[in-house]
Design a protein around this nucleic acid. Structure first.
Lengths: 207, 207
DNA sequence: GCATCATGTTAGCACTGTAAACATTACGAG
DNA sequence: CTCGTAATGTTTACAGTGCTAACATGATGC
């Protein structure tokens, strides 16, 4: 069979070689993940859409898992950036921290498949004795904590506070995606903002 | 080919019929899930271990998905019961609520595959306008909230408080299972107990 | 005792990820 | 420029999957 006609090469001068298959595969992978809710990337289907034989991908990824890992890495990157923008837009301080948390949830809900993928496989990163690893998302979190609770310079308390906040938004994301909690902006805001009306002295803040 | 020799029937008097294949399949499924960390139940492999042909399972489950759904249901049941016992052991009040939360995380960490399965597929339950559905696990949560914050009889505030607590333990579970947070009892206690050291009046929970 | 239904069986389909062997192109050294 | 080699693609094949269809067996009620 001759070359598939619907080959959409990036640089389509030649025919046999693709140009930059690795990049193309990652790009298409992200697109497919964005379109569907369940992370069901098929190696063969992917290759078909790339106008390339299935096994060609093995020249660029050791296995399907390796490909997914690469996509997952792109996932945390996007998440981190999204949070960063949200934090900046909110100006700083406590509102910025709240915005960071909401951004986490909103990104997750808006990118279900990529979110699932990203956290299904353990994010590579020598997490240097420090939980959370070296990704931007976690860095945003730490910054937010420091901003809201400057009295906690470092140490366990700050770490625990960070893990607490992370767990909260992470769990909320998962539960919404699992259909357990309504995907409602007000709900998200309320849950992220804390026990909400329960604490008498902090004024309904994150805490 | 005659009947496979290693048939381990529950009631092995006859030969062709199994006795109670449905129950046996569920039991073995749970066992396999308990043994491995990743939920990779194979229909064929399962049948092989049951000493039965792969398609026999289709007499009892409409599809692999249906089988997994049944296992998932058993999952929430176990989780709920585990929480209930923990709550009772703690005596009641706030310590009981804290214990419920810790139990959630500990069960999840102790049963990774079943936990993942349970929440991967949306738990059936006509969630009657009330988020959370009708499972025992969520009921424990509501009870805990009521116990700790009796001033919230019903309404949105209590619902949000429940979702908050649920999100927290759920997220913590996932992050531990993803290898992002250490599976350390002290960490779990601290994160579950709240901002921990931040709130000045609760004394850092029962930690 | 016999029809019927529940429950098991085998054969086969379309699909998957992946390995092995082969083909084509790009590229750097003589 | 030529030519060997490495990079990148191809076809073929294998073992595995969930699932359907057609058939066999055993239990059950008239």
């Amino acid at each position: 069979m001759m070359r598939n006609a619907n080959t959409v090469n990036i640089k389509s001068q030649g025919d046999y070689h693709h140009g930059d298959l690795r990049a193309a595969a990652l790009a298409l992978g992200l697109k497919k993940l964005a379109e569907q809710a369940v992370p069901e990337l098929g190696l063969r289907g992917l290759a078909r859409e790339l106008g390339v034989s299935a096994t060609a991908l093995y020249r660029h990824f050791a296995s399907k898992d390796a490909l997914l890992d690469a996509l997952a890495e792109e996932g945390i990157r996007q998440l981190g950036e999204f949070q960063k923008r949200a934090a900046e837009a909110a100006g700083g301080g406590r509102p910025s921290f709240q915005a960071t948390g909401e951004a986490y949830v909103k990104w997750a809900v808006g990118n279900p498949a990529l979110f699932a993928l990203t956290f299904a496989r353990k994010i590579r990163s020598d997490l240097s004795t420090q939980a959370g690893g070296d990704n931007e998302a976690f860095r945003q979190l730490q910054a937010g904590i420091s901003s809201v609770h400057p009295e906690l310079e470092q140490g366990k308390s700050r770490a625990f506070a960070a893990l607490h906040a992370w767990s909260l938004v992470h769990g909320l994301s998962h539960l919404i995606l699992a259909g357990q909690i309504d995907n409602d902006p007000e709900t998200i805001r309320a849950v992220v903002s804390g026990t909400f009306g329960l604490d008498r002295e902090t004024g309904g803040g994150r805490a």
